[in-house]
Design a protein around this nucleic acid. Sequence first.
RNA 1: GUGGCUAUAGCUCAGUUGGUUAGAGCACGAGAUUGUGAUUCUCGGGGUCGCGGGUUCGAGUCCCGUUAGCCACCCCA
Length: 454
Amino acid sequence: MPEATPRVPGQHVLQPPTGTRDFYPIELARLRFIQDAWRRTSITHGFQEIDGPTFEHLDLYTIKSGEGIVSELFSFERFQGEKRFALRPEFTPTLARLYASKAASLPKPTKWFWMQNCFRAERPQRGRLREFCQWNCDILGTEPIGSPDQEPEAMARMDAEIIATCVAGLEKLGLKPSDVKVKIGHRAAVVHMLTAGGCPLDKIDAGLAWLDTYLKVEEPKFRGAGAALGLSSGAIDQLIGVLFKGAQGEPPPAARRVLELVTELGIGDWCVFDYSIVRGLAYYTGMVFEVHEASGAERAIAGGGRYDKLIELFGGPSTPAVGFGMGDVVLSLVLQDRGLMPSDKQIARELGLRPDVVVISNGSGESDAAVTPTLAALRKAGLHARRPYKATKNIGKLLKDAADQDAQYAMILEDGGMVTIKDMDKNVQRPEKAKLAEVVGSVRVYLPVGGLSG
RNA sequence: GUGGCUAUAGCUCAGUUGGUUAGAGCACGAGAUUGUGAUUCUCGGGGUCGCGGGUUCGAGUCCCGUUAGCCACCCCA
Protein backbone atom coordinates (compact mmCIF):
# COMPACT_ATOMS: atom_id res chain seq x y z
CA MET A 1 0.00 0.00 0.00
CA PRO A 2 1.53 3.29 -1.05
CA GLU A 3 2.27 5.62 1.75
CA ALA A 4 -0.03 8.57 1.96
CA THR A 5 2.22 11.53 2.54
CA PRO A 6 0.03 14.60 2.61
CA ARG A 7 2.00 17.56 1.41
CA VAL A 8 1.09 19.89 4.19
CA PRO A 9 3.05 23.05 3.62
CA GLY A 10 5.12 24.04 6.61
CA GLN A 11 4.67 27.50 7.97
CA HIS A 12 8.04 28.52 6.60
CA VAL A 13 6.70 28.39 3.07
CA LEU A 14 3.50 30.18 3.98
CA GLN A 15 5.28 33.20 5.36
CA PRO A 16 7.54 35.50 3.42
CA PRO A 17 11.19 35.50 4.52
CA THR A 18 12.10 37.71 7.44
CA GLY A 19 12.05 41.38 6.60
CA THR A 20 10.33 41.02 3.23
CA ARG A 21 6.82 42.02 2.29
CA ASP A 22 3.97 40.60 0.27
CA PHE A 23 2.18 43.21 -1.76
CA TYR A 24 -1.52 42.59 -2.21
CA PRO A 25 -3.32 45.07 -4.49
CA ILE A 26 -3.86 47.69 -1.80
CA GLU A 27 -0.29 47.59 -0.56
CA LEU A 28 1.13 47.66 -4.04
CA ALA A 29 -1.07 50.62 -4.93
CA ARG A 30 0.37 52.53 -1.96
CA LEU A 31 3.91 51.76 -3.10
CA ARG A 32 3.06 52.80 -6.64
CA PHE A 33 1.58 56.03 -5.31
CA ILE A 34 4.94 56.89 -3.75
CA GLN A 35 6.91 55.72 -6.76
CA ASP A 36 4.68 57.72 -9.03
CA ALA A 37 5.54 60.90 -7.10
CA TRP A 38 9.23 60.02 -7.19
CA ARG A 39 9.23 59.31 -10.89
CA ARG A 40 7.32 62.42 -11.89
CA THR A 41 9.52 64.57 -9.68
CA SER A 42 12.67 63.09 -11.21
CA ILE A 43 11.45 63.68 -14.73
CA THR A 44 10.29 67.24 -14.17
CA HIS A 45 13.70 68.02 -12.67
CA GLY A 46 15.49 66.71 -15.72
CA PHE A 47 16.69 63.30 -14.56
CA GLN A 48 16.65 60.21 -16.76
CA GLU A 49 15.88 56.79 -15.39
CA ILE A 50 18.50 54.06 -15.48
CA ASP A 51 18.75 50.55 -14.09
CA GLY A 52 21.31 47.81 -13.68
CA PRO A 53 21.38 44.21 -12.53
CA THR A 54 19.70 43.08 -9.32
CA PHE A 55 22.95 41.38 -8.33
CA GLU A 56 26.55 42.33 -8.92
CA HIS A 57 29.97 40.81 -8.36
CA LEU A 58 30.64 40.85 -4.65
CA ASP A 59 33.88 42.73 -5.34
CA LEU A 60 31.92 45.75 -6.51
CA TYR A 61 30.72 46.29 -2.95
CA THR A 62 33.92 45.46 -1.12
CA ILE A 63 35.89 48.01 -3.21
CA LYS A 64 33.97 50.84 -1.66
CA SER A 65 33.18 49.55 1.78
CA GLY A 66 35.75 46.86 2.59
CA GLU A 67 35.29 43.20 3.50
CA GLY A 68 33.32 44.15 6.59
CA ILE A 69 30.33 44.85 4.39
CA VAL A 70 29.95 41.21 3.41
CA SER A 71 28.07 40.26 6.57
CA GLU A 72 25.44 42.85 5.67
CA LEU A 73 24.90 41.46 2.18
CA PHE A 74 22.94 38.61 0.72
CA SER A 75 25.81 37.01 -1.17
CA PHE A 76 25.99 33.73 -3.01
CA GLU A 77 28.11 31.79 -5.45
CA ARG A 78 27.53 29.14 -8.05
CA PHE A 79 29.21 25.80 -7.79
CA GLN A 80 31.15 25.84 -11.01
CA GLY A 81 33.88 28.22 -10.10
CA GLU A 82 32.18 31.47 -10.88
CA LYS A 83 32.84 34.53 -8.82
CA ARG A 84 30.84 35.41 -5.76
CA PHE A 85 27.82 37.62 -6.23
CA ALA A 86 25.67 39.76 -3.97
CA LEU A 87 22.17 41.18 -4.22
CA ARG A 88 22.49 44.95 -4.46
CA PRO A 89 22.37 46.64 -1.05
CA GLU A 90 22.37 50.06 -2.77
CA PHE A 91 22.69 51.45 -6.23
CA THR A 92 25.66 53.80 -6.01
CA PRO A 93 28.35 51.23 -6.95
CA THR A 94 26.33 50.16 -9.99
CA LEU A 95 25.82 53.79 -10.88
CA ALA A 96 29.54 54.46 -10.60
CA ARG A 97 30.24 51.43 -12.80
CA LEU A 98 27.76 52.57 -15.44
CA TYR A 99 29.11 56.09 -15.44
CA ALA A 100 32.77 55.15 -15.35
CA SER A 101 32.53 52.90 -18.39
CA LYS A 102 30.86 55.49 -20.64
CA ALA A 103 31.96 58.72 -19.03
CA ALA A 104 33.59 60.17 -22.14
CA SER A 105 30.39 60.02 -24.17
CA LEU A 106 28.00 61.24 -21.47
CA PRO A 107 26.71 64.79 -21.18
CA LYS A 108 27.98 67.15 -18.53
CA PRO A 109 26.37 67.12 -16.17
CA THR A 110 24.72 63.70 -16.35
CA LYS A 111 21.52 63.51 -14.31
CA TRP A 112 20.24 60.03 -13.54
CA PHE A 113 17.58 58.60 -11.28
CA TRP A 114 16.84 55.07 -10.19
CA MET A 115 13.95 53.48 -8.32
CA GLN A 116 14.15 49.79 -7.49
CA ASN A 117 14.44 47.35 -4.63
CA CYS A 118 17.56 46.78 -2.52
CA PHE A 119 18.50 43.99 -0.15
CA ARG A 120 20.33 44.12 3.16
CA ALA A 121 20.87 41.23 5.55
CA GLU A 122 19.97 43.14 8.67
CA ARG A 123 17.67 42.41 11.51
CA PRO A 124 14.40 44.15 10.68
CA GLN A 125 12.90 46.76 12.95
CA ARG A 126 10.74 49.83 12.62
CA GLY A 127 11.61 51.60 9.40
CA ARG A 128 14.09 48.93 8.37
CA LEU A 129 13.48 45.83 6.29
CA ARG A 130 15.62 43.39 4.38
CA GLU A 131 14.04 44.31 1.08
CA PHE A 132 12.90 47.83 0.37
CA CYS A 133 12.51 50.24 -2.48
CA GLN A 134 14.92 53.10 -2.88
CA TRP A 135 14.85 56.24 -4.98
CA ASN A 136 18.20 57.69 -6.01
CA CYS A 137 18.97 60.88 -7.88
CA ASP A 138 22.53 61.71 -8.87
CA ILE A 139 24.23 64.50 -10.75
CA LEU A 140 27.58 63.46 -12.19
CA GLY A 141 29.86 66.23 -13.30
CA THR A 142 28.89 69.91 -13.40
CA GLU A 143 28.04 72.37 -16.12
CA PRO A 144 31.18 73.37 -18.04
CA ILE A 145 33.32 75.95 -16.31
CA GLY A 146 35.80 78.41 -17.72
CA SER A 147 38.45 78.24 -15.05
CA PRO A 148 39.14 76.12 -11.96
CA ASP A 149 38.18 78.91 -9.58
CA GLN A 150 34.60 78.63 -10.81
CA GLU A 151 34.38 75.02 -9.72
CA PRO A 152 33.06 75.67 -6.18
CA GLU A 153 30.18 77.69 -7.60
CA ALA A 154 29.39 74.99 -10.19
CA MET A 155 29.37 72.30 -7.51
CA ALA A 156 27.24 74.36 -5.15
CA ARG A 157 24.67 74.70 -7.91
CA MET A 158 24.50 70.94 -8.33
CA ASP A 159 24.31 70.48 -4.57
CA ALA A 160 21.36 72.83 -4.34
CA GLU A 161 19.66 71.19 -7.31
CA ILE A 162 19.93 67.77 -5.68
CA ILE A 163 18.46 69.03 -2.43
CA ALA A 164 15.66 70.76 -4.32
CA THR A 165 14.80 67.56 -6.15
CA CYS A 166 14.65 65.64 -2.90
CA VAL A 167 12.40 68.27 -1.34
CA ALA A 168 10.16 68.35 -4.42
CA GLY A 169 9.60 64.62 -4.10
CA LEU A 170 8.52 65.04 -0.50
CA GLU A 171 6.35 68.02 -1.33
CA LYS A 172 4.60 66.10 -4.10
CA LEU A 173 3.51 63.61 -1.46
CA GLY A 174 1.96 66.37 0.60
CA LEU A 175 4.74 67.02 3.11
CA LYS A 176 5.44 70.56 4.24
CA PRO A 177 8.34 72.35 5.93
CA SER A 178 6.50 71.86 9.22
CA ASP A 179 6.55 68.08 8.68
CA VAL A 180 10.18 67.47 7.80
CA LYS A 181 13.54 69.18 8.10
CA VAL A 182 16.40 69.04 5.68
CA LYS A 183 19.56 69.19 7.74
CA ILE A 184 22.52 70.28 5.71
CA GLY A 185 26.09 69.79 6.88
CA HIS A 186 29.48 70.10 5.31
CA ARG A 187 32.36 67.71 5.60
CA ALA A 188 34.92 70.37 4.77
CA ALA A 189 33.99 72.50 7.76
CA VAL A 190 34.32 69.61 10.19
CA VAL A 191 37.49 68.31 8.57
CA HIS A 192 38.98 71.77 8.92
CA MET A 193 38.15 71.83 12.62
CA LEU A 194 39.68 68.39 13.08
CA THR A 195 42.93 69.26 11.37
CA ALA A 196 43.15 72.61 13.08
CA GLY A 197 42.67 70.82 16.38
CA GLY A 198 45.60 68.50 15.76
CA CYS A 199 44.12 65.51 13.99
CA PRO A 200 46.54 64.26 11.30
CA LEU A 201 45.25 64.03 7.73
CA ASP A 202 45.45 60.24 7.58
CA LYS A 203 43.17 59.99 10.59
CA ILE A 204 40.38 62.21 9.29
CA ASP A 205 38.06 59.31 8.51
CA ALA A 206 38.62 57.96 12.01
CA GLY A 207 37.95 61.44 13.34
CA LEU A 208 34.60 61.65 11.56
CA ALA A 209 33.66 58.21 12.83
CA TRP A 210 34.69 59.31 16.31
CA LEU A 211 32.40 62.33 16.19
CA ASP A 212 29.59 60.03 15.18
CA THR A 213 29.94 58.18 18.52
CA TYR A 214 29.34 61.27 20.65
CA LEU A 215 25.75 60.47 21.53
CA LYS A 216 26.51 56.81 22.19
CA VAL A 217 29.38 56.79 24.67
CA GLU A 218 30.20 58.44 27.97
CA GLU A 219 31.87 61.83 27.65
CA PRO A 220 35.19 60.86 29.36
CA LYS A 221 35.53 57.90 27.02
CA PHE A 222 34.68 60.12 24.08
CA ARG A 223 37.29 62.67 25.10
CA GLY A 224 39.87 59.93 25.58
CA ALA A 225 39.28 58.64 22.08
CA GLY A 226 39.55 62.18 20.74
CA ALA A 227 42.88 62.69 22.49
CA ALA A 228 44.14 59.45 20.91
CA LEU A 229 43.52 61.07 17.53
CA GLY A 230 45.85 63.88 18.48
CA LEU A 231 43.21 66.43 19.39
CA SER A 232 43.87 68.91 22.16
CA SER A 233 41.46 69.24 25.04
CA GLY A 234 40.46 72.70 23.82
CA ALA A 235 39.84 71.42 20.33
CA ILE A 236 37.58 68.70 21.70
CA ASP A 237 35.63 71.30 23.66
CA GLN A 238 35.23 73.35 20.55
CA LEU A 239 34.05 70.40 18.45
CA ILE A 240 31.50 69.36 21.04
CA GLY A 241 30.29 72.93 21.40
CA VAL A 242 29.90 73.60 17.70
CA LEU A 243 28.56 70.25 16.54
CA PHE A 244 26.33 69.20 19.40
CA LYS A 245 25.56 72.26 21.44
CA GLY A 246 25.02 74.78 18.71
CA ALA A 247 27.73 77.10 19.96
CA GLN A 248 28.29 78.48 16.49
CA GLY A 249 25.24 79.81 14.72
CA GLU A 250 26.91 80.83 11.48
CA PRO A 251 27.31 78.19 8.79
CA PRO A 252 30.88 77.80 7.50
CA PRO A 253 31.88 79.56 4.26
CA ALA A 254 31.97 76.27 2.36
CA ALA A 255 28.24 75.74 2.94
CA ARG A 256 27.08 79.32 2.65
CA ARG A 257 26.62 79.34 -1.11
CA VAL A 258 24.53 76.18 -1.07
CA LEU A 259 22.26 77.73 1.53
CA GLU A 260 21.86 80.84 -0.61
CA LEU A 261 20.99 78.75 -3.62
CA VAL A 262 18.37 76.61 -1.88
CA THR A 263 16.74 79.85 -0.80
CA GLU A 264 16.76 81.06 -4.39
CA LEU A 265 15.14 77.77 -5.37
CA GLY A 266 12.33 78.51 -2.95
CA ILE A 267 12.99 75.78 -0.41
CA GLY A 268 14.89 77.78 2.18
CA ASP A 269 12.23 77.20 4.80
CA TRP A 270 12.72 73.43 4.53
CA CYS A 271 16.46 73.64 5.21
CA VAL A 272 18.60 74.25 8.23
CA PHE A 273 22.35 74.10 8.61
CA ASP A 274 23.54 71.51 11.11
CA TYR A 275 27.23 70.91 11.80
CA SER A 276 26.57 67.51 13.32
CA ILE A 277 25.46 66.03 10.00
CA VAL A 278 28.62 64.39 8.73
CA ARG A 279 27.19 61.00 7.59
CA GLY A 280 29.03 57.86 8.55
CA LEU A 281 30.16 57.04 5.06
CA ALA A 282 33.79 57.54 4.24
CA TYR A 283 33.20 58.53 0.64
CA TYR A 284 31.43 61.83 1.19
CA THR A 285 33.66 64.77 0.42
CA GLY A 286 31.65 67.98 0.79
CA MET A 287 28.05 68.93 1.36
CA VAL A 288 26.05 66.24 3.15
CA PHE A 289 22.39 66.27 4.14
CA GLU A 290 19.72 64.23 5.85
CA VAL A 291 15.95 64.60 5.93
CA HIS A 292 14.22 63.93 9.22
CA GLU A 293 10.68 64.02 10.47
CA ALA A 294 10.30 67.40 12.19
CA SER A 295 9.82 66.10 15.73
CA GLY A 296 12.71 63.68 15.38
CA ALA A 297 10.46 60.64 15.17
CA GLU A 298 11.45 57.79 12.86
CA ARG A 299 14.76 57.20 11.16
CA ALA A 300 16.19 59.48 8.51
CA ILE A 301 13.83 59.71 5.55
CA ALA A 302 16.59 60.45 3.07
CA GLY A 303 20.29 61.13 3.02
CA GLY A 304 22.87 62.20 0.53
CA GLY A 305 25.81 64.35 -0.26
CA ARG A 306 28.78 65.03 -2.45
CA TYR A 307 31.15 62.23 -3.38
CA ASP A 308 33.83 63.60 -5.66
CA LYS A 309 36.31 60.71 -5.48
CA LEU A 310 34.02 57.76 -6.00
CA ILE A 311 33.87 57.64 -9.80
CA GLU A 312 37.65 57.64 -9.84
CA LEU A 313 37.69 54.79 -7.35
CA PHE A 314 35.64 52.75 -9.79
CA GLY A 315 38.05 53.38 -12.63
CA GLY A 316 36.43 56.40 -14.23
CA PRO A 317 37.72 59.90 -14.82
CA SER A 318 37.90 62.27 -11.88
CA THR A 319 34.29 63.46 -11.65
CA PRO A 320 32.56 65.57 -9.06
CA ALA A 321 29.24 63.99 -8.09
CA VAL A 322 26.35 64.54 -5.73
CA GLY A 323 23.26 62.49 -5.00
CA PHE A 324 20.77 61.24 -2.49
CA GLY A 325 18.80 58.13 -1.63
CA MET A 326 15.33 57.81 -0.14
CA GLY A 327 13.64 54.59 0.96
CA ASP A 328 9.97 53.74 0.84
CA VAL A 329 9.78 52.28 4.35
CA VAL A 330 10.50 55.27 6.58
CA LEU A 331 8.76 57.58 4.13
CA SER A 332 5.56 55.52 4.37
CA LEU A 333 5.71 55.66 8.15
CA VAL A 334 6.12 59.43 8.13
CA LEU A 335 3.23 59.87 5.70
CA GLN A 336 1.08 57.76 8.00
CA ASP A 337 2.28 59.62 11.11
CA ARG A 338 1.31 62.86 9.45
CA GLY A 339 -2.01 61.60 8.13
CA LEU A 340 -0.88 62.17 4.56
CA MET A 341 -1.33 58.69 3.17
CA PRO A 342 -4.46 59.06 1.03
CA SER A 343 -7.35 56.64 1.28
CA ASP A 344 -7.21 53.53 -0.85
CA LYS A 345 -9.96 54.98 -3.01
CA GLN A 346 -8.08 58.21 -3.55
CA ILE A 347 -4.89 56.36 -4.44
CA ALA A 348 -6.76 54.19 -6.94
CA ARG A 349 -8.16 57.32 -8.56
CA GLU A 350 -4.78 59.02 -8.76
CA LEU A 351 -3.22 55.97 -10.31
CA GLY A 352 -5.96 55.77 -12.93
CA LEU A 353 -7.34 52.49 -11.63
CA ARG A 354 -10.89 53.69 -11.24
CA PRO A 355 -13.48 51.94 -13.47
CA ASP A 356 -15.20 54.18 -15.96
CA VAL A 357 -18.37 52.15 -16.13
CA VAL A 358 -20.00 49.06 -14.69
CA VAL A 359 -22.47 47.32 -17.01
CA ILE A 360 -25.53 45.94 -15.24
CA SER A 361 -28.28 43.76 -16.65
CA ASN A 362 -31.89 44.51 -15.78
CA GLY A 363 -32.33 40.80 -15.25
CA SER A 364 -34.09 39.82 -18.45
CA GLY A 365 -32.61 37.07 -20.61
CA GLU A 366 -32.13 39.52 -23.42
CA SER A 367 -30.15 41.93 -21.26
CA ASP A 368 -28.12 39.19 -19.61
CA ALA A 369 -26.98 38.11 -23.05
CA ALA A 370 -26.06 41.68 -24.00
CA VAL A 371 -23.67 42.26 -21.10
CA THR A 372 -20.63 40.50 -22.55
CA PRO A 373 -20.75 42.09 -26.05
CA THR A 374 -21.38 45.50 -24.49
CA LEU A 375 -18.35 45.13 -22.25
CA ALA A 376 -16.23 44.16 -25.22
CA ALA A 377 -17.43 47.15 -27.23
CA LEU A 378 -16.81 49.61 -24.39
CA ARG A 379 -13.34 48.22 -23.79
CA LYS A 380 -12.57 48.43 -27.48
CA ALA A 381 -13.55 52.10 -27.26
CA GLY A 382 -10.87 52.51 -24.60
CA LEU A 383 -12.94 52.50 -21.46
CA HIS A 384 -12.24 50.70 -18.24
CA ALA A 385 -15.45 48.66 -18.17
CA ARG A 386 -16.51 46.01 -15.70
CA ARG A 387 -19.52 43.93 -14.87
CA PRO A 388 -20.63 42.72 -11.43
CA TYR A 389 -19.66 39.16 -10.59
CA LYS A 390 -22.72 38.69 -8.43
CA ALA A 391 -25.58 36.26 -8.68
CA THR A 392 -28.26 38.68 -7.55
CA LYS A 393 -30.58 40.48 -9.96
CA ASN A 394 -31.37 43.13 -7.37
CA ILE A 395 -30.55 46.45 -9.04
CA GLY A 396 -29.87 48.13 -5.72
CA LYS A 397 -27.24 45.59 -4.77
CA LEU A 398 -25.67 45.75 -8.19
CA LEU A 399 -25.43 49.52 -7.95
CA LYS A 400 -23.90 49.18 -4.54
CA ASP A 401 -21.35 46.83 -6.03
CA ALA A 402 -20.59 49.43 -8.71
CA ALA A 403 -20.25 52.07 -6.00
CA ASP A 404 -17.94 49.81 -3.99
CA GLN A 405 -15.73 49.57 -7.04
CA ASP A 406 -15.81 53.37 -7.31
CA ALA A 407 -17.16 53.26 -10.85
CA GLN A 408 -17.85 56.63 -12.43
CA TYR A 409 -20.93 55.40 -14.28
CA ALA A 410 -23.34 52.54 -14.10
CA MET A 411 -25.03 51.41 -17.27
CA ILE A 412 -28.21 49.36 -16.91
CA LEU A 413 -29.07 47.31 -19.99
CA GLU A 414 -32.79 47.47 -20.71
CA ASP A 415 -34.98 45.46 -23.03
CA GLY A 416 -35.25 46.52 -26.65
CA GLY A 417 -31.62 47.63 -26.99
CA MET A 418 -31.96 50.57 -24.61
CA VAL A 419 -29.77 51.57 -21.65
CA THR A 420 -30.08 53.69 -18.53
CA ILE A 421 -26.94 55.63 -17.65
CA LYS A 422 -26.30 56.73 -14.10
CA ASP A 423 -23.59 59.12 -12.98
CA MET A 424 -22.47 57.53 -9.74
CA ASP A 425 -20.61 60.58 -8.41
CA LYS A 426 -23.57 62.92 -8.83
CA ASN A 427 -26.09 60.24 -7.98
CA VAL A 428 -28.25 61.19 -10.96
CA GLN A 429 -29.23 59.32 -14.06
CA ARG A 430 -30.25 60.47 -17.50
CA PRO A 431 -34.01 60.99 -17.55
CA GLU A 432 -34.26 59.39 -20.99
CA LYS A 433 -33.07 55.94 -21.84
CA ALA A 434 -30.58 55.84 -24.69
CA LYS A 435 -29.98 53.41 -27.50
CA LEU A 436 -27.19 51.00 -26.65
CA ALA A 437 -25.76 51.12 -30.17
CA GLU A 438 -25.59 54.90 -30.04
CA VAL A 439 -23.89 54.93 -26.64
CA VAL A 440 -21.27 52.47 -27.79
CA GLY A 441 -20.72 54.52 -30.91
CA SER A 442 -20.23 57.78 -29.01
CA VAL A 443 -18.90 56.82 -25.61
CA ARG A 444 -17.32 60.20 -25.05
CA VAL A 445 -20.67 61.88 -25.33
CA TYR A 446 -22.58 59.51 -23.10
CA LEU A 447 -19.82 58.55 -20.69
CA PRO A 448 -17.47 61.52 -20.42
CA VAL A 449 -14.50 60.34 -18.36
CA GLY A 450 -10.92 61.31 -17.75
CA GLY A 451 -11.57 64.73 -16.32
CA LEU A 452 -13.99 65.76 -19.04
CA SER A 453 -16.99 65.68 -16.75
CA GLY A 454 -17.75 68.78 -14.92
C1' G B 1 24.65 38.31 16.39
C1' U B 2 22.21 39.78 21.86
C1' G B 3 17.90 40.88 24.82
C1' G B 4 12.43 42.20 26.04
C1' C B 5 7.20 41.77 24.57
C1' U B 6 3.55 39.43 21.52
C1' A B 7 0.81 35.35 18.50
C1' U B 8 -7.30 32.82 18.73
C1' A B 9 -11.76 33.93 11.79
C1' G B 10 -10.03 38.75 6.58
C1' C B 11 -10.06 42.92 10.81
C1' U B 12 -10.84 44.23 16.27
C1' C B 13 -11.10 41.08 20.22
C1' A B 14 -13.77 37.48 24.10
C1' G B 15 -12.62 32.59 25.79
C1' U B 16 -13.71 31.45 33.74
C1' U B 17 -9.13 27.35 38.94
C1' G B 18 -7.41 23.25 32.49
C1' G B 19 -13.54 20.51 31.06
C1' U B 20 -18.87 19.04 25.72
C1' U B 21 -18.73 20.52 18.96
C1' A B 22 -13.80 27.57 20.32
C1' G B 23 -17.53 32.58 20.26
C1' A B 24 -19.08 37.98 19.20
C1' G B 25 -19.01 42.51 16.32
C1' C B 26 -17.53 44.25 11.73
C1' A B 27 -16.30 42.41 6.86
C1' C B 28 -17.52 38.68 3.05
C1' G B 29 -21.31 35.40 0.33
C1' A B 30 -26.65 33.96 -0.74
C1' G B 31 -31.79 35.24 -0.22
C1' A B 32 -36.34 38.42 0.93
C1' U B 33 -38.81 43.50 0.00
C1' U B 34 -41.97 45.02 -8.77
C1' G B 35 -35.59 48.25 -10.21
C1' U B 36 -31.57 52.61 -7.67
C1' G B 37 -25.87 53.05 -3.77
C1' A B 38 -29.87 53.11 2.67
C1' U B 39 -32.16 50.46 6.70
C1' U B 40 -33.99 45.87 8.43
C1' C B 41 -34.63 40.56 8.54
C1' U B 42 -33.16 35.31 7.42
C1' C B 43 -29.42 31.96 6.11
C1' G B 44 -24.36 30.78 5.02
C1' G B 45 -18.99 30.15 4.12
C1' G B 46 -15.17 30.49 6.80
C1' G B 47 -10.24 28.64 12.44
C1' U B 48 -3.79 23.54 11.16
C1' C B 49 -6.08 28.51 18.42
C1' G B 50 1.70 30.57 14.76
C1' C B 51 4.46 25.64 14.56
C1' G B 52 6.51 21.26 17.30
C1' G B 53 6.98 18.58 21.65
C1' G B 54 5.77 17.76 27.00
C1' U B 55 2.52 17.44 31.59
C1' U B 56 -2.66 15.63 32.12
C1' C B 57 -8.27 11.34 31.89
C1' G B 58 -8.58 16.03 29.15
C1' A B 59 -4.59 21.87 26.76
C1' G B 60 -6.69 27.83 23.13
C1' U B 61 -5.50 27.85 28.62
C1' C B 62 0.20 25.10 32.18
C1' C B 63 5.75 23.90 30.81
C1' C B 64 9.85 23.62 27.09
C1' G B 65 11.55 24.49 22.29
C1' U B 66 10.96 26.90 17.65
C1' U B 67 9.24 30.40 13.89
C1' A B 68 7.38 35.07 12.74
C1' G B 69 6.15 40.09 14.11
C1' C B 70 7.04 44.43 17.06
C1' C B 71 10.63 47.13 20.18
C1' A B 72 15.65 48.14 21.92
C1' C B 73 21.11 47.08 21.18
C1' C B 74 25.01 46.33 16.92
C1' C B 75 24.84 48.61 12.32
C1' C B 76 22.74 51.86 9.18
C1' A B 77 25.48 52.55 2.18
